[in-house]
């Protein structure tokens, strides 16, 4: 099926030309497809992780959307990304794998989950949770979330780009949220 015949293709053509509404519709249409594949492939995973993987895949589509050639069918391109990222995300949750941080754009939602530190008034408890992160991620959380230092200053001090900071913070907060959930009775 050519792009012009595929409703998803039409939406992505418009999206790549800058139509944000078409892009939102495209992503909303793709999300259930991804969700279905994640559900089928990720049977061994906790259900609450499925949506995290769906988001990883949508983010991957977002970051690589310009690699689709509108002269070619959309579906093989789309399914190749979905398959690659679902497998990658599943593997990442099964064991630690390297993911280049620079490949993520600066659009990651840092406040995606409730702040896992909100309910942790006890300083020792916060330190204990942060102690389970790698030192760099812990320092990013301390600087940006606890001490509320300006991002630019933190970036200079830790020699990290704004994109790296945001991605590191995003991942650290997700990890903290998971750790905090595990601690709940």
């Amino acid at each position: 099926m050519q792009a012009t015949e595929d409703p998803l293709g039409i939406l992505l053509v418009a999206a790549n030309a800058g139509d944000g509404q078409a892009y939102a519709r495209f992503l909303h249409a793709v999300a259930p497809i991804v969700r279905g594949i994640v559900r089928a492939r990720g049977r061994g995973l906790p259900v609450d992780l499925h949506e995290d993987i769906v988001q990883d895949v949508l983010l991957a589509i977002h970051l690589k959307r310009q690699t689709w050639d509108a002269g070619h069918p959309l579906r093989p391109w789309l399914y190749a990304i979905v398959r690659y990222k679902v497998i990658d995300s599943l593997r990442a949750r099964g064991k630690k794998v390297y993911l280049p941080i620079e490949d993520y754009s600066d659009v990651l939602p840092a406040e995606e989950t409730a702040d896992p530190l909100d309910a942790r008034d006890d300083q020792r408890e916060v330190d204990r949770l942060l102690g389970q992160l790698d030192p760099r991620s812990a320092e990013v959380v301390r600087a940006l979330e606890l001490r509320e230092e300006p991002q630019a200053e933190v970036g200079v001090r830790l020699e990290m780009t704004p994109v790296n900071l945001r991605v590191t913070l995003h991942r650290a907060m997700k990890r903290l949220a998971a750790l905090a959930r595990k601690d709940l009775p």
């Binding site: 999206a15 999300a31 988001q55 983010l59 310009q66 754009s105």
Partner: peptide, 21 residues
């Protein structure tokens, strides 16, 4: 609104990427 919907809303406001060349 779910977090995925929020993510989509945010992504959709991003400017288009330069074409793959």
């Amino acid at each position: 609104m779910t977090t995925t919907d929020n993510l989509i809303r945010r992504l959709a406001t991003e400017p288009p990427l330069p074409p793959f060349n």
